[in-house]
Every structure is written in C-alpha cells, then in structure tokens.
Amino acid sequence: MADKNPFPGENNTGHVWDDNIRELRNPIPRWWMIGFWISLAWWVAYGILYPMIPMGESWSKGVLGWSMVGEYQEGLEQVEKVRAKYEEQIAGLSAEEILADEGLTAYTVASSRVLFGDYCAACHGSGGQGGDIFPVLADDDWLYGGSVATIQQTITNGRRGMMIGHGSMLSEQEIATLASLVADWDGASEEARTLYQSKGCFGCHGADGKGIQALGSANLTDAVWRFSDLDPVASATYTITHGVNDPNQPKTREAVMPAFNERLSENEIKKLAVYVYKLGGGQ
C-alpha cells in the first residue's frame, strides 16, 4: 500500500497493489441502501412484534402475542361457528328426520367423512366396500336391516352373529348337499330342499331361505355373500361345518361388530348412521 495516492483525482479508495492495481469506489445506489436499512428495520420490528428468537426450551413471544396454534384455534372456532347452525338442528332431529332434509343430509355426509375414516374405514373400507371378513356397507344386503334406525342401533350396540358349527351333527355328504343349495338356491335339487327343512336350517334362515333380520341370519338366496364368494360351495361348506362365532368350534368364522356407544356420542352415531345409509344401500 502506498503512502501517497499515485493516482490522484481517480475515484479510488487509496488501496493500491503492485503499483497499479487499485480498488475503485463504485457504491451501490443510495435508494438500494435505503431499502436495505428498511428491511433491517422490518426485521427488528418483526422480532419485537412476533415470536422469533429461540431461547432454550422457550422462545421470544412477541408483544402481539400471536402464535400459530392460536391462529389455528381461531380458524377452528370460525369453522365451528359456521357448523353450529347445522349441528344444533341435527342434535334435535332423528336420523330419519335428517334424511328427509336434503341440505342437512348433505351436511351430515360431508361432515361425517372424517368420523367414518377414524372409526369405520379400518374394517369396512373408506368407501364402505368391506374387505376380507368385513361386510360391504355400500350394497343393499343387510343382515340386520338397512333402515337408518337399524344401522344406528348396530353402531350403538354392536352385533355378534351366531351360527352353530354343524360339523359334528351332519355327515360330510349332508353338508355338501346343503352347501350346493346355498351356492345355487334356485337350481338346487329337491333332495337338498328336503334336507334344508329336515335339518331345521329354516329355524334361523327362514322357510324361504331369505334370512330373518331380527336374528341377523343371512339371506341364502341372494347374490351377496357374507364371507368369501370366490368359491361359493367351499365357502358355504366351511360356514356350515364351523359356524359363526361358535365358542365350541376353534376354526369358527368370526363376525363381531363392536359397540360404539362408549366411544362415540349419540349424535356422532346418528350422523354416522346417515353416512352409512347414504353409501349406496340404505333402505
């Protein structure tokens, strides 16, 4: 660095290297610097007004007292306020009365989607399509009845199907004959129909085989299968042999719908009943 500026009159900083390399002054626009200081001031003001600086387990809260969770709560309150007018109406109505009102039904269906996802979809599928051993909710076949009141009752108290395993009571031949009847009701032999009557199947499934909803017995004549329908004869054979929820049969089919009256409020169950009813099979 030279003591005396060898380039007088030039717009340099006085820093010179190697005799002729020097640093010139090219300041950035003043208005740009003003903008820079304004943005710094903004940062300081922001830090004073809003939460900003982490301090161990805590943080600076800001004088406005704003917080993200607070804003979320406010938003939630606003939503609840919008919903309140429908919720109040729904609270005073029965499920049938809700279904009679198109607007309320639409609201109920829209607002129960999350509830269904939380409590029902794990077994019955997100669209009520059922799965494995869990019944389809979107069809029109109902073991216990498809009216909204029955659905509501089913959710409230749960259901537990009951069929004794007939493996020890019937011969293999008899079971095979009965299974063929269940697999093809209309085309079954006279022998199979006689066996159905003589073995007392009608006691639960009805003389016409259409089931009795008060008992929750399956309709044996329709196209819908409570359990696997991949091989109808095999499926029917298995069910007749081992039964459903038979405590004496280790290989019995399991079919339990838990009661929700302790987990959900009456109002929530009512809304879910409407939701399930509207999935496609309500009667």
Binding site: G125, S126, G127, G128, Q129, V136, A138, D139, D140, D141, N219, D222, A223, V224, G280, G281
Partner: peptide, 16 residues
C-alpha cells in the same frame, strides 16, 4: 373409485 362397483343382492352391479 372406492368401491369401483358393488354387487347388489339381486345380482346387479351398482356404480356410484
């Protein structure tokens, strides 16, 4: 899409 189709008790197929 969920379900794509539903079998009804009379054997017909239902779409939503």
């Amino acid at each position: 899409r969920q379900p794509l189709f539903v079998l009804q008790s009379d054997g017909s197929i239902q779409n939503k």
